[in-house]
Design a protein around this nucleic acid. Structure first.
Lengths: 193, 193
DNA sequence: TTCGTTATTTGCACACTCTGCAAGACTTGC
DNA sequence: GCAAGTCTTGCAGAGTGTGCAAATAACGAA
């Protein structure tokens, strides 16, 4: 069974997604300039005020819900064997993230398309995620065995994030499967690029 | 001698910098909430309308002028020997960027401080740069010898950018010199992290 | 079904960002 | 000191985002 809170939360998430889709469809059909809160609200059949009950900003509705949160990464990292070298752990975590992405890959399609047409959009959204990940996960990486310095931790993390992002983008550009590209990316790192 | 256009341009840059400093000082002294265009304009002794003749957005005044542009990087890359392996070229370019940063390092101080207090700020600004660099430079990297695939080019570039950013941030956190940290970062990459 | 509780939606007022336009002030070179 | 261009400014207007309180809708219990 579903508890009352769960149901409310699910409905909320559904509505959020519905508004998102309305916003993205509008952007793809009529151009980014046509995307005003008023217009999106009209399509989604809600009042403009309600829009802001679901999104803190207009842009937030134009990028996909992040598939993973900084806490997820810290969690996954914590589940790795304590004596595993940092690089191996991060590789495993990255692969797990890619796996989690698989079921939602299809729904990402319109967002990818929008992303291609307006690179500046997703840039901002991803950027915040990126710094948040940095801030949150850096400490956890530092604590891993084999991490010799601050710059080492930073490079490990930024390279891992880079691998994931590169794999996603390259996959969007060439239709190769993400997971293969991710493996390829890590292989390249291991042999010093 | 200075040509008329050069002088106008220099003055414009100076005024831009003056407004920037007013904005950052305000942010550091009174908090980010106190930074409205009106307030900044008052401190900088210009009209609010004039503010927008110098900056396209409020945030633009709160982050430092980018030290390098995508075109610079493409240019530097083009100056490398044609048969040099891609990784070596990028390393050299990164080092050159670090050198160029040296003279302005001091002026970056207040921005760094603001950056520490409000990570979300610089995130957005840097993000746009980052994607722009990606978009612009990726083709040039692909054309380098030894670049075997799209994902290879992407990883080379993102890792280089990552090295530069990591070095800057670590330097801000520990006061170690940027250039040494940058060398260390590249050394780490070369031995597969 | 009806009622009372609780969550959600909405309207309204307001502060703020940013743009186009046209008028005014200021610089320059001659 | 004038003519040409440049820079600054005010103003009007569209759009984003927030707090508050009233109206609506949803839900469980009697």
């Amino acid at each position: 069974m579903e508890s009352p809170e769960q149901r409310r939360e699910r409905r909320r998430a559904e509505k959020r997604q519905a508004i998102r889709l309305a916003a993205v469809r509008l952007a793809l059909d009529e151009g980014l300039d046509a995307v005003t809160v008023e217009a999106v609200s009209a399509v989604a059949d809600i009042s403009p005020r309600t829009f802001f009950n679901y999104f803190a900003s207009k842009e937030e509705a134009l990028v996909m819900e992040p598939v993973w949160r900084p806490d997820d990464i810290v969690g996954l990292l914590g589940e790795r064997p304590p004596d595993e070298p940092a690089f191996q752990s991060l590789k495993a975590v990255a692969r797990e993230l890619a796996v989690r992405m698989r079921p939602v890959w299809d729904t990402m399609q319109p967002f990818m398309e929008l992303n291609n047409r307006h690179p500046e959009l997703a840039a901002r959204a991803r950027a915040v995620d990126q710094t948040q990940i940095m801030e949150t996960v850096l400490g956890a990486v530092r604590a891993r065995p084999g991490v010799t310095s601050g710059i080492h931790a930073r490079m490990l993390l930024i390279t891992t994030i880079g691998a994931v992002i590169s794999a996603i983008q390259e996959s969007a550009a060439t239709d190769e499967p993400v997971e293969e590209l991710l493996d390829e990316a890590f292989a390249l790192i291991e042999r010093g690029l």
